[in-house]
Design a binder for these strands. Structure first.
Length: 111
DNA sequence: GCACTGACTCCCA
DNA sequence: ATGGGAGCCAGTG
């Protein structure tokens, strides 16, 4: 597990998320080659490598919310880091239309 | 080896 | 718009 290629693929995708942007579990799963396996993404980030260079905080659920209950340590860390990168929380929710990582948008704005 | 759980998502009522 | 249920893959007991 620790060095599971599936996880590496997922982590690799997560690492590709541009700073200041966020992506969803489903998106990550699809991009890493596992459509509909959103849970794997979560598991990968939780148990696996998710080392210091894995920006797991840029991964939120499809509703643009953090996957941790408000008040939990992880929630705070994630929120803090995202705000650090310029992501704005609107009543605890991120506007995916604006910050969601869209590959086309990425091409246009970040290339 | 079976069954439950989980950092999720989608579809239907 | 909101809530409930099923689907998915791996990890863990």
């Amino acid at each position: 597990m620790r060095e599971n290629p599936k996880y590496l693929a997922i982590l690799a995708v997560v690492a590709k998320i541009p700073k200041g942007n966020v992506s969803t579990y489903g998106e990550i799963a699809a991009l890493s080659g596992f459509p509909r396996c959103a849970r794997l993404v979560g598991t990968a980030l939780r148990s696996d490598a998710s080392g210091p260079d894995t920006p797991w905080h840029r991964v939120v659920n499809s509703q643009g919310k953090l996957s941790f209950p408000q008040g939990s340590a992880n929630h705070n860390i994630q929120k803090q880091r995202l705000m650090d990168e310029g992501v704005v929380f609107h009543t605890g929710i991120i506007n995916l239309k604006q910050y969601g990582w869209d590959r086309d948008l990425d091409k246009t704005l970040w290339s």
